[in-house]
Design a binder for these strands. Structure first.
Lengths: 159, 159
DNA sequence: AAAGATTGAAGCTTCAATCTTC
DNA sequence: GAAGATTGAAGCTTCAATCTTT
């Protein structure tokens, strides 16, 4: 292990480049989503998870597991999306504690008008710029970093 | 260029790993900061920029340039930090429009109690896990992504 | 008009507390 | 008590509008 209190100039350069890339990429992808269908990145995560779900509906907790969000974050986001008519919350027959989250017609329209261009944007701003080797390196180092942060996390893989 | 509407399973895997790494890394670094001195990642950016500035003070706009934040974000953050006694805003002699942002004694204490461990955390969770080649790959692909998003951005490099 | 900076509103995110149903 | 979910408060972030000084 290196000296714990020092970071080289080269390392700082890499760190700054990495931080900047993340920010610019998020901003660019977010702008495309906004332009396509007037939705945010957070909206998109929810819409896509619902779109891909069996019968296009999910329980709130399950939705949170799929996109790795806390229950509270899910609930607040759903409240905002419901007020904009993108989703609805419906009572759950077999468990009165729970709710089904379902896409409205407006929500389905938003997914349809967005998903193709968002995928294209992902290609344009990210995948098409990386060689297969670079993509492999990124995956490998990402997994390693996650593993170092919390070894337990690595075995939890919500599908 | 690949088919713009399709992303391979391998690419999705990489994307998920990357997104997850970013989130876990941010969370882990943030927790360390919180444990060290009760400050957030946003606080830390501001404190460090001030600490490293000549005379340990900066104009708000200059601060925003250094850490790549919008002026509004800077202003709101400074308001919160001022209310917690970490910084002060002082009038500017030679330009009555502007303000100097300065560290308070409490703010200096927060930097001192934080910077060493935050650097160590960065080593532990990130730098020590990457080979020089991987670090180089990450820097290179990061620059490329930023360049593809906005070519103009690449020539602007606020120091 | 441009520069430096603040404000208010709205959305995003986390935390702790809460409520109902199992 | 645990599970499913919501709420309120506080901090974070962006946008558009504003205000003062240059």
């Amino acid at each position: 292990m290196s000296d714990r209190s020092s970071v080289s100039e080269k390392e700082w350069q890499s760190w700054r480049a990495f931080v900047r890339m993340r920010r610019e990429l998020d901003r660019a992808l977010g702008e495309r989503l906004q332009a396509d269908g007037g939705i945010s990145a957070a909206d998109y995560s929810v819409l896509l998870a619902l779109w891909e779900a069996p019968e296009r509906r999910l329980r709130a907790t399950r939705l949170g597991d799929l996109i790795n969000w806390e229950k509270s974050r899910v609930s607040h986001q759903l409240t905002r999306m419901e007020s904009r008519g993108l989703i609805e919350r419906m009572d759950c027959d077999d468990d009165a504690r729970g709710k089904w989250v379902v896409l409205t017609a407006e929500g389905r329209r938003a997914v349809l008008s967005t998903v193709r261009d968002h995928t294209a944007a992902l290609r344009e701003y990210f995948f098409d710029l990386l060689s297969p080797e670079e993509l492999g390196t990124l995956t490998s180092l990402s997994d390693r970093v996650v593993g170092a942060i919390d070894p337990a996390i690595c075995r939890e893989d919500p599908e």
